[in-house]
Design a binder for these strands. Structure first.
Length: 741
DNA sequence: TACGGCCAACTTTTT
DNA sequence: GTTGGCCGTA
C-alpha cells in the first residue's frame, strides 16, 4: 500500500541531493529559447505573457502542466525571477511533486526555496512558521475528516442532542461550509431560528474543543492562514514582496476561501497565473466554486485570457463526441477542443443485459486489445460509484487479467495506522483529545464508557483537555478503584512510551510505540484480520518513518513533521505494477489511457440519482462525463446495462441522457454473438425487427416484459419474453407487435 | 467491561 | 458486499 509513497519519497530525495541550487549572478545554463520551443502558439502566448494577470483556460489534454512548468522556467530564466519569488499551488501532492520534478528536470538545478505545494500544505507551512501570530500552540496537529467527524459526534452527544435530528455528517459539512465562507462562529447570528441557534452552538463547542486540544482541521488550515495574512499587515507585506508570481493549478476546483487566500497573498503586487478548465469542475459538492474561474476576469482589471484548445491526447472522433456532450451545459467560458491527429475509431457502445454481462463484455474487449498487442495497463475502466468495481474486479480476476483498483482505503487512513499515529500524537501533545479518545481504550484496558463519560464531564467543566482531566481523576477519589487503576495505567503507559523512545531515531520510536502500547499484539490476535494485513501495515509504518527520517534529516521536530505529513498525504500512490486501471471518474481526472471504458451509463447511476432534480448538479455530472470521455486517447467504449443490481435489488434504468447527447454517427453499437440487432437510438424504435437478450419490451396485450431467449431469424424469428404479469411466452416476432419500453 | 452478532447505510473524496 | 455503530449477553 505505502510502497508507492515510499518510492515517491526516495525519488524526490534523489533529485534534491543531486541537483545544485540555483546560483544567483551566474549565467543562465539554459538557452531561453528552449523554454518556448516545442510549444504551440497559444501555449507560447501563455508562457511568455508579460507581467500581469493571466487566465489560462486549458482544455483536457491541451498541455496544462507543460504550460505551468514552462511558465515558471521562463520566469526564472528570462525574467530575473528567483525561485523564492514563486508560489505555485495545486490540489494534490502528486501534482505538486510532478510540477517540481519537471521544473528541476528542465532547469537542471534544484528549486528548493520555491514554494510549490498543495493549498493545505502551503497553508500549513505558513502556520508552522507563524504559529504565534496565528494564535496556535506550537505543536498543533492536523486532524483529517474522520477525526473531525468523531469529534463532532462527541460534541453532539455531549450537548445531549439527538443524532437522528442532528446527523453528524451534516453538522460536519455545515461547519466546514461556514469555514469555507470565512465565517467564525462568533460572526454568525441565528436570526431567531432555533435550528441555527443550535448548530451555531455546536460549531462554537467544536471550535472550543479544537482550541483546547491544539487541533486544526483541513478547512481550518486555510481559514487560519487566510486570517493570518488578513490580520497581520506586516506579515502579508513580507510575503507579498517575496511572492511576485502566484500560479494556481486546477483553478476551477478552488473554493471561496482558497480564492480569497490567493487574492490576499497577491495583494496588489503579485501577478496571478490561473490555470483551469471550467468544463472539468467536478468538485462542487466539496465546496469548489466554478464561479471563481468565471469571475476572475471581472475581479481584476486587464486579465489576459488564453485558451488552450489544441488537444494532444484523443482522436478527433472522441473530441467531437465530448464537445457535443459538454455543449449541453449553460454558462461556460466556452471553448472547442480540436486536434490534428486522425479521426480514429468510432466510439463503441454496448448495451448489456445486466452488470455481469457488462463486465464480461469489457473483459472480452480487453482480451482483444491484448491479443492485438496492447498492454493491460493501457486500459482503464471508469465508473461513477466505487460500488461498481466489485463486479468488474471479479470478471477480470476470473479471466486472469491483471488489474489495480484506485482509491478506496488509504494507508494513513487505516484504523490500525491511525491508532498508532494517535499514540504518537499524544506523545507530541498530551492535550490532543481526538487522539486521546481514540486510543484510551485501544487495545482494551478496562477504561469503559462510564469512566470516559466522567472524564469528559470533568474536562468540559474545567475547560481542560481529557488528558488533564484524566490526571486529576487518577489522583483524586472520584473514581472507583478499578477505573482509577486502569486510568493511571494508561497515563503511565504514555509517559513510558514517551521517555523510553524520546532519544532514539524516529522509526525506533514508532516501533517502540506500536510494540509497547500493545497495539501490535492486539492486531496480531485480531481474528477478523485473517490475512494479517493490519500487522503488516503497522510494520510498514515503521519503514515509512525510517524513510521519512532519511528524507528530512534536519528539522527541530521530526515527529511533528512526520505526523503532519501523515495527515496531509494519503500515503497511497499505486504506481508500480501493471494491469488494467479501475477507478471512479473523479479519480481519473488528469490521467489518460489509450483504451477507456466508461461504464454504467444509466439514468440514476450516471447521472446519479441524487443529481437528477438539480440542474446545477446535473451539469456537474455532465462535466464528469466530459472528463471521463476525454481520458481516452484511441478507443472509447461506452457501456450500459438494462438490469442493474444495486444493494441487492434490481433496477431497470433508462440509458443515460449523455448517450443521447453524443451524435449517432460517431457511435458504433457493438453486438455480441447470440444477440440480434436492435437499432436502439433511432427515433422510431418501434420499427425495429429484432431484440437483444434482456431487452425490455412491451406487448399490446401482455404488457411489459424482458426478452429471455430467441431463435430463428427473419419471418420465422421467435422470442421468449418474460412478462411482468402474463408470465413467460414464446412469440413470433413478425406478428407479436412488440415495442420498446 | 468485553465481545459477538445484528442492522442500517451506501455518490463522488485532491487535503 | 462491506462497514461501522448499537445492543444484548456473559
Amino acid at each position: 500500500m505505502s510502497r508507492g509513497a515510499l518510492r515517491l519519497a526516495v525519488s524526490r530525495l534523489t533529485i534534491k541531493r543531486s541537483l545544485p541550487e540555483k546560483q544567483f549572478g551566474t549565467i543562465s545554463r539554459m538557452n531561453p529559447l528552449h523554454v518556448v520551443t516545442a510549444l504551440n502558439p497559444a501555449q507560447q502566448k501563455a508562457v511568455t505573457a508579460q507581467p500581469g494577470h493571466v487566465l489560462v483556460v486549458a482544455g483536457a489534454g491541451s498541455g496544462k502542466t507543460r504550460v505551468l512548468v514552462h511558465r515558471i522556467a521562463w520566469l526564472l530564466e528570462t525574467q530575473r525571477s528567483a525561485p523564492h519569488n514563486i508560489f505555485a499551488v495545486t490540489f494534490t501532492n502528486k501534482a505538486a511533486a510532478e510540477m517540481r520534478a519537471r521544473i528541476e528536470a528542465m532547469l537542471r538545478y534544484s528549486v528548493g526555496n520555491m514554494w510549490v505545494g498543495t493549498f493545505h500544505g502551503l497553508a500549513h507551512r505558513l502556520l508552522r512558521t507563524h504559529w504565534r501570530e496565528a494564535s496556535l500552540p506550537e505543536g498543533f496537529q492536523i486532524i483529517d475528516s474522520e477525526d473531525q467527524r468523531r469529534l463532532v459526534r462527541r460534541i453532539i452527544r455531549t450537548l445531549g442532542l439527538d443524532e437522528a435530528r442532528w446527523p453528524v455528517k451534516q453538522v460536519q459539512s455545515w461547519i466546514n461550509a461556514q469555514k469555507e465562507a470565512g465565517m467564525r462562529c462568533t460572526q454568525l447570528h441565528d436570526g431567531g431560528d432555533p435550528w441555527r441557534r443550535q448548530i451555531i452552538s455546536l460549531y462554537r463547542e467544536y471550535e472550543a474543543t479544537c482550541r483546547r486540544s491544539g487541533l486544526v482541521d483541513f478547512a481550518e488550515l486555510l481559514l487560519r492562514s487566510h486570517d493570518l495574512l488578513r490580520d497581520h499587515e506586516e506579515l502579508a507585506a513580507h510575503y507579498r514582496s517575496r511572492f511576485r508570481h502566484i500560479l494556481v493549478d486546477e483553478f476551477q476546483d478552488t473554493n471561496g476561501l482558497q480564492y480569497a487566500w490567493i487574492r490576499l497573498l497577491a495583494g496588489d503586487q503579485g501577478w496571478l497565473f490561473m490555470v483551469g478548465d471550467d468544463d472539468q469542475s467536478i468538485y462542487g459538492w466539496r465546496g469548489a466554486r466554478i464561479e471563481n474561474i468565471h469571475r476572475f476576469p471581472q475581479d481584476y482589471a486587464n486579465v489576459l485570457t488564453i485558451r488552450l484548445e489544441q488537444n494532444y491526447r484523443s482522436t478527433r472522433t472522441i473530441l467531437t463526441a465530448a464537445n457535443a456532450v459538454i455543449a449541453n451545459n449553460q454558462g461556460r467560458l466556452g471553448k472547442n477542443l480540436w486536434t490534428d491527429v486522425g479521426v480514429g475509431d468510432p466510439l463503441h457502445l454496448y448495451r448489456a443485459f445486466n452488470d455481469l454481462d457488462e463486465a464480461r463484455f469489457i473483459v472480452g474487449r480487453i482480451h482483444q486489445w491484448l491479443a492485438q498487442g496492447g498492454r493491460a495497463d493501457q486500459a482503464a475502466i471508469l465508473y461513477r460509484t466505487s460500488a461498481q468495481s466489485r463486479v468488474l474486479e471479479e470478471a477480470l480476476a476470473a479471466q486472469g487479467v491483471p488489474y489495480r483498483v484506485y482509491g478506496g482505503q488509504r494507508f494513513y487512513e487505516r484504523a490500525e495506522i491511525k491508532d498508532a499515529l494517535a499514540y504518537l500524537r499524544l506523545i507530541a501533545n498530551r492535550d490532543d483529545d481526538a487522539a486521546f479518545e481514540r486510543v484510551v481504550n485501544t487495545p482494551p484496558r478496562a477504561i469503559g464508557a462510564r469512566t470516559l463519560e466522567k472524564l469528559r464531564l470533568v474536562a468540559r467543566e474545567g475547560g481542560v483537555s481529557l488528558w488533564q482531566a484524566a490526571r486529576d481523576l487518577a489522583a483524586g477519589g472520584a473514581l472507583a478503584a478499578r477505573a482509577r487503576t486502569a486510568l493511571s495505567g494508561f497515563l503511565a503507559l504514555l509517559a513510558r512510551l514517551d521517555e523510553d523512545t524520546a532519544a532514539g531515531p524516529l522509526d525506533e520510536r514508532v516501533a517502540g510505540v506500536i510494540e509497547n502500547s500493545g497495539l501490535l499484539e492486539y492486531y496480531r490476535r485480531d481474528k477478523s484480520n485473517h490475512s494479517g494485513t493490519r500487522v503488516e501495515n503497522l510494520e510498514e509504518l515503521v519503514s515509512a518513518a525510517r524513510q521519512f527520517s532519511y528524507d528530512q534529516p534536519e528539522g527541530e521536530s521530526l515527529l511533528g513533521a512526520f505526523l503532519a505529513r501523515a495527515a496531509l498525504e494519503s500515503g497511497d500512490d499505486p504506481s508500480g505494477g501493471g494491469g488494467v486501471h479501475l477507478m471512479t471518474l473523479h479519480s481519473a481526472k488528469g490521467l489518460e489511457f489509450p483504451l477507456v471504458f466508461l461504464c454504467g451509463l444509466e439514468e440514476g447511476l450516471f447521472p446519479h440519482q441524487r443529481s437528477l432534480n438539480d440542474p446545477g448538479k446535473l451539469e456537474e455530472e455532465r462535466r464528469l462525463c466530459y472528463v471521463g470521455m476525454t481520458r481516452a486517447m484511441q478507443v472509447l467504449c461506452l457501456t450500459h446495462a438494462e438490469v442493474r443490481r444495486i444493494h441487492n435489488a434490481d433496477f431497470y434504468p433508462e440509458p443515460s441522457r449523455f448517450l443521447q447527447e453524443i451524435p449517432m454517427d460517431l457511435v458504433r453499437e457493438v453486438r455480441l454473438r447470440g444477440s440480434v440487432s436492435w437499432p436502439r437510438y433511432t427515433p422510431d424504435a418501434d420499427q425495429a425487427d429484432s431484440f437483444t437478450l434482456g431487452q425490455r419490451v412491451a406487448h399490446p396485450k401482455f404488457g411489459k416484459g424482458v426478452v429471455l431467449n430467441y431463435e430463428g431469424r427473419g419471418a420465422h424469428a421467435r422470442v421468449q419474453v418474460n412478462f411482468e404479469h402474463a408470465g413467460t411466452k414464446w412469440l413470433v416476432l413478425a406478428y407479436a407487435n412488440l415495442g420498446a419500453v
